[in-house]
Design a protein around this nucleic acid. Structure first.
Lengths: 113, 113
DNA sequence: TCGTTAGATTGATAGATGTCAATACTTAGC
DNA sequence: GCTAAGTATTGACATCTATCAATCTAACGA
C-alpha cells in the first residue's frame, strides 16, 4: 500500500550515506527528517517495536497493548508505512504489518561515522 | 551546558539495545522518541551535518549557510544539545559545537537488527 | 442477505513546534 | 565603564500533530 512512497524515498536517499561525512543536501535533509519524524513519537516507536519483535502483527493485536483507540493506531501505522518503515499486507479482513529492514539500514547508515 | 540532560538520557537509554529485539518499555520509547524528534527537522539535520563534517563549528558560521535567523539557529542548536546529539563549549564570545558520537551510537544500536 | 468484525476516513480539538522581531545577556576590546 | 559582537530568551503567530468520536468500507460467516 505505501509502496510508491517508500520506493521514492528509498531511491532518493540512496544518493548519500552518512550525515557526518559532509553537509547533506536540502533534499536529503527533508527525506531523512521525514523518516526520523516517523520514529519521533513514543506510541509509534512502541508499535514499531511490537511489530518488529513479533515478526508480523495485525492492527487488531496492537490496539489493546498500546492502549490507544483504533483510529489512532490506524493513523500511526499509516505514518510508519508512509515513511517506509513498515509494510502492510492485507489478508482477509486484517492487515499483517512487518518492518522494512532496508529502511532501517538506510537510517543507520545515515548516522554511521 | 546541556551536560545534565545528555547524561540523564544516556544512562536511562543504556538499559536496552535494539528496538527490534523485544517490545520496548514506555520509558525507553519516550527517551528514544525525544532523540529522534531532534533529528526530525530538515534544518536541524543540516545544522547537525554541518557541525559534524566541520568537526567543530560556532553558531556564527552556521547562520548564513543555513539561511535562518539567529534566534532560529539558537533554538535548533538548543534542541540538538538538549537531546544530547551535540555539545557546546563556550570559548570567549562564541560557542563551539561538536557532535556527541556516543549518542549516535545509541541511536544506531536502537535500530540494529 | 444480514450481522459482525477489521480497518480506514473524516471532523474536531488541544497541544506541540518552527519561525522571526525585539530584547536581554555575556564577553572582548578600548 | 562603554561599545560592539555572539548567543540566548521572550512573545507572538502560523502550522503541524496526536487523539478520539462518529462514520464509512471491506470481508467473513451464518
Amino acid at each position: 500500500m505505501p509502496a510508491r512512497t517508500a520506493t521514492r524515498l528509498t531511491m532518493a536517499m540512496a544518493d548519500c550515506c552518512s550525515v557526518l561525512a559532509e553537509p547533506i543536501t536540502d533534499r536529503h535533509a527533508v527525506e531523512l527528517a521525514q523518516a526520523f519524524a516517523a520514529l519521533a513519537d513514543p506510541v509509534r516507536l512502541r508499535l514499531f517495536s511490537m511489530i518488529a519483535s513479533a515478526g508480523t502483527a495485525c492492527s487488531c493485536n496492537l490496539i489493546e497493548p498500546i492502549g490507544k483507540s483504533q483510529p489512532t493506531v490506524s493513523h500511526h501505522t499509516k505514518v510508519l508505512a508512509d515513511a517506509g518503515l513498515i509494510t502492510g499486507e492485507k489478508v482477509g479482513r486484517w492487515v499483517n504489518w512487518t518492518v522494512v529492514l532496508g529502511k532501517l539500514d538506510q537510517l543507520r547508515a545515515a548516522l554511521a561515522p
